[in-house]
Design a protein around this nucleic acid. Structure first.
Lengths: 151, 151
DNA sequence: TTCTATACTTACCTTTGAGAGAGTGACCTT
DNA sequence: AAGGTCACTCTCTCAAAGGTAAGTATAGAA
C-alpha cells in the first residue's frame, strides 16, 4: 500500500525494542512517526470538525459546537487546540467584548480533509454492506453459541 | 465535503435529543450511521492491521502480531473480531493441531484500505510540516505562558 | 510422561477519555 | 446595579480502553 515491506531481520531487531522505540532502525522511526500522526489525526472529533470546516468555511466557537453533533465544549476546545497545534486550523481572536474567535482550515487542514474524503465516500457507499456483514456475523455467532451450550 | 448542510431548525431539533439520537430526523440518522461507521473503522489498530494485510496478504495470528508493531494479543484478537464482524477480513480456521488460523482481507476490506491510502500518503508527505507546526505552536505557547506569568 | 506449539480467553488493574456543570473576565445594555 | 454574552477553564466523576499475565485445549515429539 505504501511502505516498503520489512525484512525478517529488521522485524526481529525491532521487536527487541518494543517497549522503547528502536533508535537506530531508521525505517521503524519513520513508521512510528507516521503511525503516531495517524493516531492523532484519525480521531473522531478531529474528523468531524475537519469535515464541518471544509464544508462551511470559517466558523466561530459556539457555531462550531452547534454544527458538530454531540460534541461537548470541552472536547471542542481540546480538539481545536490539537488541530491548531499540528497546523490544521488557524485560530483568530478578535479583541472585542464579548470575545469573538474564528476557526478556519489551513491549506494543510484542507489537504487532510481531501485525503479523508475517500474514507467518507467509502463509508457512505458501503454502509449497507457493513450492516449486512454485521447481522450475518451476529446470527452466525449466536448459532455457534447455542451449539456450544448444547454440548 | 459530503453531507448536505443542516438547516438551523434541524440542528435545534437535533440538539434537544442529544442524549438519545433523534428518531425522526432522517438526515441525522444517516449521518449518525456514517459517523459511527467511521468511528469503528478509523481506529488505530484497525488501520494498522488493514495496512499490514493489504501489503503482505493472508497472515496467521502470531505473524500478524509480529508485523503490527506494539499490538497486544488482546487488542489483536479484539480488533480482528471487529473487522471480521464488519466484513473486512475473513477468518479461516484449519482444524489441525496446533491450531492454524489465517486472516485475509475481503474485497470490502481492500477497498477500505485503498480509501485510507490517501491518508497514509498525506501523513508521509506532511510529516515534517506537522512537526514544524507543532514546534512553532509550542514555542509560541511557552512565550505566552512566560508573558502571563510576568503579569 | 512431560514438553511444545498455536490461538486464543479470562481476570485484574491502571491509564485515559469524556461528559456535566459551575465559574470567569470584560464590557455593554437595561 | 444587575444581567447578558462569548469563549473558554476547572473540577469532579464515571466509563471505557488497553496492558500484563496466567490459563486452556490438543496432539505429536522427545
Amino acid at each position: 500500500m505504501k511502505k516498503p515491506a520489512f525484512t525478517e531481520k529488521q522485524i526481529a531487531s525491532a521487536r527487541q525494542y518494543q517497549s522503547t522505540p528502536p533508535p537506530e532502525v531508521h525505517e521503524g522511526k519513520v513508521e512510528a512517526l507516521v503511525n503516531e500522526l495517524i493516531g492523532r489525526v484519525a480521531d473522531k472529533w478531529t474528523m468531524l470538525i475537519l469535515d464541518i470546516l471544509a464544508e462551511n468555511g470559517e466558523q466561530r466557537f459556539t457555531r462550531l459546537g452547534e454544527l458538530v453533533t454531540g460534541v461537548s465544549q470541552k472536547m471542542l476546545t481540546q480538539t481545536l487546540r490539537h488541530m491548531e497545534r499540528e497546523g490544521l486550523v488557524t485560530r483568530t481572536v478578535h479583541p472585542v467584548v464579548p470575545p469573538r474567535v474564528e476557526y478556519k482550515l489551513t491549506p494543510l487542514g484542507m489537504s487532510l480533509g481531501a485525503a479523508f474524503c475517500g474514507v467518507w465516500i467509502w463509508a457512505e457507499k458501503n454502509l449497507d454492506k457493513v450492516e449486512q456483514a454485521r447481522t450475518t456475523f451476529d446470527r452466525r455467532a449466536a448459532a455457534a453459541k447455542r451449539k456450544a451450550a448444547a454440548r
